[in-house]
Amino acid sequence: MDLERRRLFGGGLSLGALTMLTGCDISDHDSVQRALALVSRFNDRVQAAIFGPNKLAPTFSEAEAVKDFRYNAWYGPEKSPVLTSADYRLMLAGQIKDKTPWTVEKLYSLPQVTQITRHVCVEGWNMIGKWTGTPLGVFLNQIGADTTAKYVGFECADGYYEGIDMATAMHPQTLMAFKLSDNILPTRHGYPFKLRIPTKLGFKNPKFVTTIYVTNQQPKGFWTDRGYNWFSGI
Protein backbone atom coordinates (compact mmCIF):
# COMPACT_ATOMS: atom_id res chain seq x y z
CA MET A 1 0.00 0.00 0.00
CA ASP A 2 2.72 2.40 0.97
CA LEU A 3 4.70 1.41 -2.06
CA GLU A 4 1.70 1.97 -4.30
CA ARG A 5 1.20 5.45 -2.94
CA ARG A 6 4.79 6.34 -3.40
CA ARG A 7 4.68 5.20 -6.98
CA LEU A 8 1.58 7.30 -7.58
CA PHE A 9 2.99 10.50 -6.15
CA GLY A 10 6.59 9.94 -7.12
CA GLY A 11 6.10 9.23 -10.77
CA GLY A 12 2.54 9.38 -11.93
CA LEU A 13 1.48 12.84 -10.93
CA SER A 14 3.23 15.84 -12.33
CA LEU A 15 3.15 19.21 -10.68
CA GLY A 16 0.90 20.44 -13.47
CA ALA A 17 -1.58 17.64 -12.83
CA LEU A 18 -1.57 18.47 -9.13
CA THR A 19 -2.34 22.12 -9.67
CA MET A 20 -5.09 21.12 -12.08
CA LEU A 21 -6.59 18.84 -9.45
CA THR A 22 -6.60 21.63 -6.94
CA GLY A 23 -8.24 23.92 -9.46
CA CYS A 24 -5.46 26.44 -9.25
CA ASP A 25 -5.23 28.72 -12.26
CA ILE A 26 -1.43 28.45 -12.33
CA SER A 27 -1.79 25.54 -14.74
CA ASP A 28 -3.83 27.73 -17.09
CA HIS A 29 -1.17 30.33 -16.79
CA ASP A 30 1.52 27.74 -17.54
CA SER A 31 -0.28 26.41 -20.59
CA VAL A 32 -0.61 29.95 -21.91
CA GLN A 33 3.10 30.48 -21.32
CA ARG A 34 3.85 27.21 -23.12
CA ALA A 35 1.75 28.29 -26.10
CA LEU A 36 3.53 31.65 -26.23
CA ALA A 37 6.90 29.86 -26.04
CA LEU A 38 5.88 27.69 -29.00
CA VAL A 39 5.06 30.78 -31.06
CA SER A 40 8.38 32.29 -29.94
CA ARG A 41 10.23 29.27 -31.37
CA PHE A 42 8.28 29.67 -34.61
CA ASN A 43 9.35 33.33 -34.59
CA ASP A 44 12.98 32.17 -34.22
CA ARG A 45 12.68 30.20 -37.45
CA VAL A 46 10.99 33.09 -39.29
CA GLN A 47 13.73 35.49 -38.17
CA ALA A 48 16.52 33.10 -39.17
CA ALA A 49 14.88 32.82 -42.60
CA ILE A 50 14.64 36.57 -43.19
CA PHE A 51 18.11 37.31 -41.77
CA GLY A 52 20.36 38.58 -44.55
CA PRO A 53 23.91 37.30 -43.88
CA ASN A 54 25.31 40.19 -45.90
CA LYS A 55 22.63 42.80 -45.20
CA LEU A 56 24.47 45.55 -43.33
CA ALA A 57 23.00 47.41 -40.39
CA PRO A 58 22.88 51.18 -41.00
CA THR A 59 26.01 53.06 -39.97
CA PHE A 60 26.08 56.60 -38.72
CA SER A 61 28.33 59.64 -38.64
CA GLU A 62 30.91 60.37 -35.97
CA ALA A 63 28.76 63.31 -34.78
CA GLU A 64 25.80 61.00 -34.12
CA ALA A 65 27.82 58.66 -31.89
CA VAL A 66 27.10 59.07 -28.17
CA LYS A 67 30.28 59.55 -26.11
CA ASP A 68 28.73 58.78 -22.73
CA PHE A 69 27.17 55.48 -23.70
CA ARG A 70 24.30 54.29 -21.52
CA TYR A 71 25.10 51.66 -18.91
CA ASN A 72 22.61 48.81 -18.89
CA ALA A 73 22.41 45.62 -16.81
CA TRP A 74 20.25 44.03 -14.13
CA TYR A 75 22.83 45.16 -11.54
CA GLY A 76 24.44 48.55 -10.91
CA PRO A 77 27.70 49.56 -12.63
CA GLU A 78 29.55 49.46 -9.29
CA LYS A 79 28.96 45.70 -9.23
CA SER A 80 30.59 45.14 -12.63
CA PRO A 81 33.24 42.41 -12.45
CA VAL A 82 36.72 43.91 -12.60
CA LEU A 83 38.85 41.82 -14.93
CA THR A 84 42.58 42.55 -15.26
CA SER A 85 44.81 41.91 -18.24
CA ALA A 86 47.21 39.99 -15.94
CA ASP A 87 44.63 37.40 -14.90
CA TYR A 88 42.15 37.37 -17.75
CA ARG A 89 42.08 34.48 -20.21
CA LEU A 90 39.51 33.95 -22.94
CA MET A 91 38.68 30.23 -22.89
CA LEU A 92 37.58 28.39 -26.02
CA ALA A 93 35.42 25.29 -26.06
CA GLY A 94 33.32 23.07 -28.30
CA GLN A 95 33.90 22.57 -32.02
CA ILE A 96 37.13 24.58 -32.21
CA LYS A 97 40.53 23.19 -33.36
CA ASP A 98 42.85 25.47 -31.40
CA LYS A 99 41.51 25.93 -27.90
CA THR A 100 44.56 27.76 -26.52
CA PRO A 101 43.31 30.45 -24.12
CA TRP A 102 43.81 34.04 -25.26
CA THR A 103 45.32 36.85 -23.22
CA VAL A 104 44.07 40.44 -23.48
CA GLU A 105 47.33 41.44 -25.15
CA LYS A 106 46.95 38.79 -27.83
CA LEU A 107 43.29 39.68 -28.39
CA TYR A 108 44.08 43.37 -28.73
CA SER A 109 46.77 42.62 -31.34
CA LEU A 110 44.14 41.18 -33.71
CA PRO A 111 43.29 43.20 -36.86
CA GLN A 112 40.50 45.65 -36.03
CA VAL A 113 37.79 47.67 -37.70
CA THR A 114 35.76 50.64 -36.46
CA GLN A 115 32.04 51.00 -36.99
CA ILE A 116 29.41 53.44 -35.77
CA THR A 117 26.22 51.47 -35.27
CA ARG A 118 23.01 51.61 -33.34
CA HIS A 119 22.23 49.63 -30.22
CA VAL A 120 18.49 48.85 -30.08
CA CYS A 121 17.11 47.76 -26.72
CA VAL A 122 14.17 45.38 -26.42
CA GLU A 123 12.53 48.06 -24.25
CA GLY A 124 12.42 50.44 -27.20
CA TRP A 125 15.26 52.91 -26.66
CA ASN A 126 18.24 53.09 -28.95
CA MET A 127 21.72 54.60 -28.86
CA ILE A 128 24.44 55.06 -31.44
CA GLY A 129 28.00 54.18 -30.45
CA LYS A 130 31.43 54.01 -32.03
CA TRP A 131 32.89 50.54 -31.64
CA THR A 132 36.31 49.17 -32.57
CA GLY A 133 37.27 45.54 -32.60
CA THR A 134 37.77 42.31 -34.52
CA PRO A 135 34.98 40.74 -36.54
CA LEU A 136 33.97 37.57 -34.68
CA GLY A 137 34.00 35.67 -38.00
CA VAL A 138 37.69 36.54 -38.52
CA PHE A 139 38.49 35.30 -35.02
CA LEU A 140 36.45 32.11 -35.45
CA ASN A 141 38.32 31.31 -38.67
CA GLN A 142 41.66 32.00 -37.02
CA ILE A 143 41.03 29.56 -34.15
CA GLY A 144 39.76 26.88 -36.49
CA ALA A 145 36.15 26.98 -35.38
CA ASP A 146 33.76 24.67 -37.19
CA THR A 147 31.68 27.36 -38.90
CA THR A 148 29.32 24.72 -40.26
CA ALA A 149 28.09 24.28 -36.68
CA LYS A 150 24.81 26.00 -35.84
CA TYR A 151 25.62 28.23 -32.88
CA VAL A 152 28.23 30.22 -31.02
CA GLY A 153 27.78 30.55 -27.26
CA PHE A 154 29.24 32.97 -24.70
CA GLU A 155 29.82 32.80 -20.98
CA CYS A 156 30.58 35.95 -19.04
CA ALA A 157 32.31 36.99 -15.83
CA ASP A 158 29.10 38.56 -14.44
CA GLY A 159 27.16 35.30 -14.70
CA TYR A 160 25.58 36.31 -17.98
CA TYR A 161 25.33 33.81 -20.80
CA GLU A 162 24.15 34.17 -24.38
CA GLY A 163 24.30 32.49 -27.75
CA ILE A 164 23.76 33.39 -31.37
CA ASP A 165 23.22 31.60 -34.69
CA MET A 166 26.28 30.98 -36.85
CA ALA A 167 24.99 33.25 -39.65
CA THR A 168 24.97 36.19 -37.25
CA ALA A 169 28.36 35.17 -35.78
CA MET A 170 29.87 35.33 -39.29
CA HIS A 171 28.14 38.62 -40.17
CA PRO A 172 30.78 41.23 -41.10
CA GLN A 173 29.48 43.72 -38.52
CA THR A 174 29.49 41.28 -35.59
CA LEU A 175 32.47 42.47 -33.56
CA MET A 176 34.47 41.48 -30.54
CA ALA A 177 34.51 45.13 -29.47
CA PHE A 178 37.65 46.22 -27.62
CA LYS A 179 37.04 49.96 -27.78
CA LEU A 180 34.13 52.31 -27.29
CA SER A 181 34.53 55.90 -28.57
CA ASP A 182 38.23 55.21 -29.34
CA ASN A 183 38.98 54.26 -25.71
CA ILE A 184 39.66 50.81 -24.30
CA LEU A 185 36.31 49.39 -23.19
CA PRO A 186 35.64 50.64 -19.63
CA THR A 187 34.90 48.02 -16.97
CA ARG A 188 31.19 48.83 -16.80
CA HIS A 189 30.84 48.21 -20.55
CA GLY A 190 32.51 44.80 -20.34
CA TYR A 191 36.32 45.01 -20.29
CA PRO A 192 38.21 43.37 -21.87
CA PHE A 193 35.60 42.98 -24.59
CA LYS A 194 31.93 42.73 -25.39
CA LEU A 195 30.12 41.32 -28.36
CA ARG A 196 28.76 44.12 -30.50
CA ILE A 197 26.06 42.77 -32.81
CA PRO A 198 24.14 45.54 -34.60
CA THR A 199 21.76 42.96 -36.14
CA LYS A 200 20.55 41.83 -32.70
CA LEU A 201 18.71 43.44 -29.80
CA GLY A 202 20.93 44.87 -27.07
CA PHE A 203 20.63 41.94 -24.67
CA LYS A 204 22.22 39.66 -27.31
CA ASN A 205 25.44 41.72 -26.91
CA PRO A 206 27.18 40.04 -23.94
CA LYS A 207 29.88 41.85 -21.94
CA PHE A 208 32.87 40.48 -19.93
CA VAL A 209 33.05 37.44 -22.22
CA THR A 210 35.24 34.73 -20.66
CA THR A 211 34.35 31.71 -22.80
CA ILE A 212 33.41 31.33 -26.45
CA TYR A 213 32.13 27.94 -27.58
CA VAL A 214 30.91 26.49 -30.86
CA THR A 215 28.06 24.01 -30.76
CA ASN A 216 25.09 22.47 -32.53
CA GLN A 217 22.97 22.71 -29.38
CA GLN A 218 21.13 26.00 -29.09
CA PRO A 219 22.87 27.89 -26.24
CA LYS A 220 20.70 29.26 -23.49
CA GLY A 221 20.51 32.97 -22.82
CA PHE A 222 20.12 34.86 -19.55
CA TRP A 223 17.10 36.83 -20.75
CA THR A 224 15.70 34.15 -23.04
CA ASP A 225 15.53 31.93 -19.95
CA ARG A 226 13.36 34.73 -18.55
CA GLY A 227 10.91 34.61 -21.43
CA TYR A 228 12.44 36.79 -24.14
CA ASN A 229 12.60 35.58 -27.72
CA TRP A 230 15.78 33.62 -28.48
CA PHE A 231 16.74 34.86 -31.96
CA SER A 232 15.93 38.52 -31.21
CA GLY A 233 17.26 39.75 -34.52
CA ILE A 234 16.43 43.24 -35.69
Binding site: Q33, V39, V122, E123, R226, G227
Partner: peptide, 15 residues
Protein backbone atom coordinates in the same frame (compact mmCIF):
# COMPACT_ATOMS: atom_id res chain seq x y z
CA UNK B 1 14.02 37.53 -12.39
CA UNK B 2 14.14 41.29 -12.31
CA UNK B 3 12.01 41.67 -15.40
CA UNK B 4 9.11 44.16 -15.25
CA UNK B 5 6.75 41.73 -17.00
CA UNK B 6 7.95 42.78 -20.44
CA UNK B 7 9.07 39.31 -21.56
CA UNK B 8 5.56 37.96 -21.33
CA UNK B 9 4.06 41.08 -22.94
CA UNK B 10 6.42 40.69 -25.90
CA UNK B 11 5.43 37.02 -26.10
CA UNK B 12 1.77 38.05 -26.41
CA UNK B 13 2.58 40.84 -28.85
CA UNK B 14 4.65 38.68 -31.19
CA UNK B 15 2.03 35.93 -31.16
Amino acid sequence: HNDPGVASAIGWHFA
